[in-house]
Design a protein around this nucleic acid. Structure first.
Length: 645
RNA sequence: GCCGAUGUAGCUCAACGGUAGAGCACCUGAUUUGUAAUCAGGUGGUUGCGAGUUCGAUUCUCGCCAUCGGCUCCA
């Protein structure tokens, strides 16, 4: 064995003694920027010894990988601080997440917000102490012994399942089981902030113990941290719950938790989206239907909802029953009614309304009815997770050989709609066979392949979401993010072989035999509630003209032009625009301010000059533009504003 | 549902064991206004609901409801 290794760095090779540590071959990089290194493509500690020929690249603090290392090390620093402040607290896991990190602890009593400043102060102290961070690899038994002796039963559980080698990172008198890598010493960690506390189940399973989680974030510099905190604050300003109230779109009231009350202005957005989807439906060949809201539970038993979804359903006794009670037992479907949480089972009755031929297919039934789901109270979140919602829901009944085309067509719709509404960063996932599933593995593979092909036909990038399909079939999930970067699923396209079976749906094929259609569940906007929430946050409430609740506000300068202001508003209304005249006895600046806050896209100022020659002075939202024009020119301009589909 | 926090006027927030206060909004009056707040006066609260401790509770304790941040679940 040679006593030297060849190191390739920045395209140049050189020979160093075997066992040289990575940091020494990166001597030219300023130490405060250097947090880790990439050796043969793998991120490792700077103290890693080189034992074979390798390519080496520095990882700087500001890089994506560098930031991850810093955050991971900061999570460790926090754990060290916590265990020094609260002896007896067990550690579990502390990963890096988008924009920060968290660490889950098992403390004697859960942490509260008040603990955070104390922990932060301790972290700063430990950071200043400049504890060197060192990695050691130990045999599994030794690791188990060590952590057992410390009473760290969660760590022992992890060690027993971890892959070799088992590595331990130490800083000062504290250590943690960890894969690494980490920064060389705690003094590298100086720009951090603990942000929140939360309960979290061990391994994410609600049957397990509830741990106490602390969230935090860390950056390469204090400036970057400040910048991030500022952005978070700005995002808060765009929260749809805040904007919805300010703009008078919708409210919530404890009298019906999780169910929005749309105010007149909110309904305009709601209906504009539905109108838009109806135009799309005409183009793409969907037929709208309206089915009942309440069904005998018998139907939900057939569809599988009674077994799989009744905990999330609002149930009602049969009003004519003597007991007036709801039987929620597995056999309870034999009596009573349920409020539909989904449209699908109802649509099977529309399908069955006639004898169907292979020539009829595909049949595409769309419905905007309100759906109710008894979501657990802790999950409710503004418009993003509600108990009452409308979806741009549709169920496509088609032949096996039509699946791919149908899915591809719906994906095209997804792209049309999200493109028209200016959404970027839409993510696609293919959710595959879950452990608990109906049908054979072969059927699933075929179904998944059909979905994947349809996605590829649209040249859309997608990820696999393993085992997250519905029990009856795989699905394509489409996600967008809210202002605070939380991802929400909006659109979905799901294959279903189960429900046609359950409701015994058939069509007559070309040779006169009965065959089973396939059902595709799909929604493009998803729930209108969630979509509106996301839309408000994406736009900050500044909606395109066709969606703006109030499109034009005519601001009069004084009483003398009151009549002209009203006349202008009336003309605009007759032309089909949502226009109002603000003839209140207020100064122009005041009216402009209010129109700006209400996010009215067109502000029209009329004074005596305008009234004299029947012109208007236009101001666009955020003071973008301001100029005078004849009234007819304004109408022309308004009519040229884009309307999708 | 679980963990933590919060709940005061329509909204945003103050007070804190001793009979609740501001700004905005709303109403009235004055002002007749040129592109993000004209001035003055006034109305408005069983301090989320229900118990308990106390001479006295908005304040302390408990239960419930709702909301916020997460977990779980999901459009």
């Amino acid at each position: 064995m040679s006593s030297e290794v060849t190191v390739t760095l920045g395209g140049e090779s050189r020979v160093v003694p075997i066992g040289t540590i990575v940091r020494d071959v990166l001597k030219d990089v300023p130490s405060r920027d250097l947090v880790a290194a990439r050796v043969d493509g793998k991120v490792v500690d700077l103290t890693r010894k080189l034992d074979h020929d390798a390519s080496v690249e520095p990882i700087l603090a500001e890089s994506v990988e560098g930031l991850d290392v810093i955050r991971h090390s900061t999570a460790h620093l926090m754990a060290m601080a916590v265990q020094s402040l609260y002896p007896g607290t067990q550690v579990t896991i502390g990963p890096v997440i988008e924009d920060g990190f968290f660490y889950d602890f098992a403390p004697a009593t859960p942490f509260t917000l008040e603990d955070l400043p104390k922990i932060e102060a301790k972290m700063r102290e430990l950071s200043k102490a400049d504890h060197k961070i060192t990695r050691t690899e130990v045999p599994r038994e030794e690791a188990v012994q060590k952590f057992s002796a410390m009473g760290e039963k969660y760590k022992v559980e992890i060690i027993n399942e971890a892959e070799d080698p088992i590595s331990i990172y130490s800083q000062g008198d504290w250590m943690d089981l960890c894969r690494g890598p980490h920064v060389p010493s705690t003094r590298y960690l100086k720009a951090f902030k603990l942000t929140s506390v939360a309960g979290a189940y061990w391994r994410g399973d609600e049957h397990n113990a509830m741990l106490s989680r602390i969230y935090g974030t860390a950056f390469a510099s204090k400036e970057a941290l400040e910048e991030h905190l500022k952005l978070v604050e700005l995002a808060r300003q765009r929260d749809h719950r805040k904007l919805g109230r300010e703009m008078g779109l919708y409210i919530f009231d404890p009298i019906s938790p999780g169910s929005p009350f749309y105010l007149p202005k909110g309904v305009i957005i709601f209906n504009a989206l539905i109108d838009y989807m109806r135009r799309m439906y005409r183009r793409y060949g969907f037929d709208e239907v309206v089915t009942p809201l309440i069904f005998k539970n018998e139907m939900f038993n057939t569809s599988g909802h009674w077994e799989n979804f009744r905990e999330n359903m609002f149930l009602s006794p049969d009003p004519e029953s003597e007991t007036h009670t709801v039987d929620t037992s597995p056999e309870g479907w034999r009596s009573g009614y349920g409020v539909k949480p989904m449209n699908c089972p109802g649509h099977t009755y529309v399908y069955r309304a006639e004898k169907r031929s292979y020539r009829d297919l595909p049949l595409r039934f769309a419905e905007f009815s309100r759906l109710h789901r008894a979501e657990r109270s802790g999950t409710l979140h503004g418009l993003m997770r509600v108990r009452a919602m409308s979806q741009d829901d549709a169920h496509i009944f088609c032949r096996e050989d039509q699946i791919e085309d149908e899915v591809a067509m719906n994906l095209e719709m997804v792209r049309d709609v999200y493109g028209a509404l200016g959404f970027e960063g839409v993510e696609f996932k293919l959710a595959t066979m879950p452990d608990k599933h109906l049908g054979t593995e072969q059927q699933w593979q075929m179904a998944e392949a059909k979905l994947a092909n349809a996605i590829k036909r649209n040249e859309i990038a997608f990820e696999i979401n393993p085992k997250e399909g519905a029990f009856y079939g795989p699905k394509i999930e489409i996600y967008v993010s809210d202002a605070l970067k939380r991802k929400w699923q909006v659109a979905t396209i799901q294959l279903d072989y189960n429900m046609p079976e359950g409701f015994d749906l058939t069509y007559t094929n070309s040779s006169g035999a009965e065959e089973r259609p396939v059902m595709i569940h799909r929604a493009i906007l998803g729930s209108l509630e969630r979509f509106i929430g996301v839309l408000i946050e994406h736009t900050g409430g500044v909606l395109p003209l066709w969606l703006a609740p109030e499109q034009v506000r005519v601001l009069s300068l004084s009483e003398k032009v009151e009549d002209y202001a009203k006349e202008v508003a009336d003309i605009l209304k007759r032309e089909g625009f949502r226009a109002h005249a603000d003839i209140r006895n207020e100064k122009l600046g005041f009216k402009v301010r209010e129109a700006e806050l209400a996010k009215v896209p067109y502000m029209i100022v009329v004074g005596e000059r305008e009234a004299a020659d029947r012109s208007v002075s236009l101001r666009l939202l955020r003071g973008e533009k301001s100029n005078a024009m004849p009234l007819t020119a304004l109408l022309e301009k308004l009519k040229q504003e884009p309307v999708p589909a």
